[in-house]
């Protein structure tokens, strides 16, 4: 069994069952001590060779994914401090301090990898990223509100955008699909780095779920629910990426495959978005979350078509099925 196969899906971890057996923030701190890794220790030699031989399709796929991940990591480094400072308990604050170190390491990993393995400068990457345009402004607003207001409602809202949507839905999906791609090419240093990042994210999402669950139990269900639904609306847009031009194969068999690949990513994210609600004590919000997600996804596909004046591959393949 490979390392990747041993890695649990974040929300399928035995520690994360909705039975109430989630780890505590103190447990997560000690897990962090045991799960250290080093960007400098990654050997990029084989990856550099592979990048030199990649054709346009895989190169674009990887660069799009790594750009979104890098931009997301930079944003979360810049916005976590208010959650650390205003954390409900000392154990939460100590755990969140470890997470700040993780996020810094993730930025260093993605920037080093893009520069030294893919030969890409990080400059200008953020401008075209969907996360920058659709989600980061809201994350900055809600984490800024934690400083400005200092109340629990604001803290739980920011936690939801940060830990449950950015990390639990968007990053977890991107890490899973990008790791699969890296594994097949093969890009061993990227696989190793993404595996390490995924392990870290697993702790972050676990913290998000225990904190949100505690918040719901303590009377903050409404701000958590409201933030979750709005976060999903923005998250679906990031995942579709209306600003990111997709290859639309002229060969229809290939178009059907392409659409299935993209739809697979959407389904992973939707599944996570719905399942997290059971873990945080809001199972009654599942139907609303599914509806918000599906509607936002369709709107994002509309926005793509409007922006590029051509249907997204998922839509193009859908109309192909309808006309067949």
């Amino acid at each position: 069994m490979t390392v990747l196969e041993e890695l649990p899906d974040i929300t399928e971890s035995p520690d994360a069952k909705p039975s109430g057996n989630l780890p505590t923030s103190k447990d997560l701190y000690y897990r962090w001590e045991r799960q250290q890794w080093s960007v400098a220790a990654l050997d990029l030699t084989k990856d550099q060779e592979t990048w030199g031989t990649l054709r346009a399709f895989y190169r674009t796929e990887l660069l799009n994914a790594l750009t979104e991940l890098e931009v997301g990591e930079v944003t979360v480094v810049e916005t976590l401090s208010s959650l650390v400072d205003k954390a409900p308990t000392d154990d939460d604050r100590i755990y969140l301090s470890t997470q700040l170190a993780d996020e810094g390491r993730h930025v260093r990993f993605f920037q080093t990898y893009l520069r030294e393995a893919a030969g890409i400068s990080g400059e200008g990457l953020a401008d075209s990223a969907d996360y920058t345009n659709h989600f980061a402004p809201e994350l900055r607003r809600v984490t800024g509100a934690v400083w400005a207001k200092g109340d629990r409602d604001s803290w739980y809202e920011a936690l939801v955008y940060y830990h449950l949507v950015t990390e639990g839905v968007l990053a977890a999906t991107a890490l899973r699909t990008t790791r699969q791609l890296a594994k097949r090419l093969p890009l061993p240093a990227l696989v190793e780095g993404l595996t390490n990042v995924t392990r870290d994210e697993s702790r972050h999402v676990a913290f998000g779920m225990i904190a949100a669950r505690d918040g719901v139990a303590a009377g903050y269900a409404e701000p958590v629910r409201r933030a979750y639904l709005h976060g999903l609306e923005l998250g679906a847009r990031v995942l579709v990426g209306p600003l990111r031009k997709q290859a639309v194969p002229a060969v229809k068999t290939a178009l059907v495959f392409r659409a299935a690949q993209l739809r697979g990513g959407f389904e992973i994210a939707r599944d996570r978005a719905v399942r997290q609600l059971a873990h945080i004590g809001l199972p009654d919000a599942v139907a609303d979350a599914a509806e918000v997600w599906d509607t936002a996804l369709e709107r994002a596909l509309d926005a793509y078509e409007e922006h590029w004046n051509t249907p997204h591959p998922v839509r193009a393949a859908g109309s192909l099925k309808e006309s067949a």
Binding site: Y58, K252, A254, F257, L320, A324
Partner: peptide, 27 residues
């Protein structure tokens, strides 16, 4: 399926292919 998509895009570039109306998603 990923490799088929990549192959299709390379063939399209090589032969300057465009979608044709009568083609269905055949095997």
């Amino acid at each position: 399926s990923m490799a088929v998509v990549e192959l299709a895009l390379v063939l399209e570039a090589e032969f300057a292919l465009e979608p044709i109306d009568e083609e269905q998603a055949i095997d």
